[in-house]
Design a protein around this nucleic acid. Structure first.
Lengths: 138, 138
DNA sequence: TTAAGTGCAAATTATTTGCAGTAAG
DNA sequence: CTTACTGCAAATAATTTGCACTTAA
């Protein structure tokens, strides 16, 4: 009997039309295995893979995260000039960025709305609107 | 008679309580000399200094931009994981990020409003809300 | 079989730092 | 004077790439 995390990862990969290699399955299971959405950096996902016993090389983690984004399975979120965060949740939603711990989490979307968004300039379209709520210790 | 750009730069520096060295005056004049607000990267400001004839070393441009931010004269804006942008405009306002040219410009603020912003979690306060409108060629 | 995927180590890019020299107060 | 500031070159940090090897289809 196939464990749930692995199955979820397999399905998720298939959804992106990506070839299910050992390393991709491992990372997919770590990312979506519990059905929750997750925010990682290349470094943090690499650490997870090491802990899980199925180590994937750091370069491959980078390449794989990029592949997942290109396949439309994840989004890259930019909050901090120094690192890239990757989010398994695909709908447009705001983020909390914890300035002291450098962590990224989802912010409740429910009631948030942006009104009076400027029109895109001539010949351009709005690809996405990123909203990052920066939190500081009170 | 002191030229306007230089005077503006001098006043601006004084406002931050920073010692007016040759290099800081040069960069300040390039940044606020025309009274407009401006978006630069360390690299682009360095290039400007070279063109202006008053070259400032790249490392000093980095250190100086950082000093200007700490003095509350500029803000760092994060849009792209690979570079840091610095904005001379200090009020909270949205930005346009041109995905193909990697340029950052101000978006009209007038009518933009965010409603239903989630409350800051326990013990935290909202330091800032960054809104980046990503533009793509239509 | 065969093109896509992988690991490693070396290469890049953006940024920071150590330190000896220079200048502002 | 004396402490902050500067420039350079070397150091870091995050990410990418070249290339020989492995593996899914």
């Amino acid at each position: 009997m196939m464990d749930t995390a692995l199955k979820r990862g397999t399905d998720w990969l298939a959804g992106g039309g990506l070839r299910p290699t050992r390393q991709r399955l491992c990372l997919a299971a770590l990312l979506v295995g519990d059905g929750e959405n997750r925010h990682v950096t290349a470094e943090s996902l690499y650490a997870l893979s090491v802990t899980s016993g199925e180590k994937v090389s750091l370069a491959t983690v980078y390449n794989t995260l990029r592949a997942f984004c290109e396949a439309g399975l994840m989004n890259e979120v930019v909050v901090d000039g120094s690192k890239s965060y990757f989010d398994t949740r695909m709908d447009d939603h705001p983020h909390f960025y914890w300035e002291d711990s450098h962590e990224l989490t989802d912010a409740p979307k429910e009631d948030l709305a942006i009104t009076g968004l400027p029109c895109a300039p001539e010949g351009m379209q709005i690809a996405r609107v990123d909203v990052v709520i920066r939190l500081r210790r009170a």
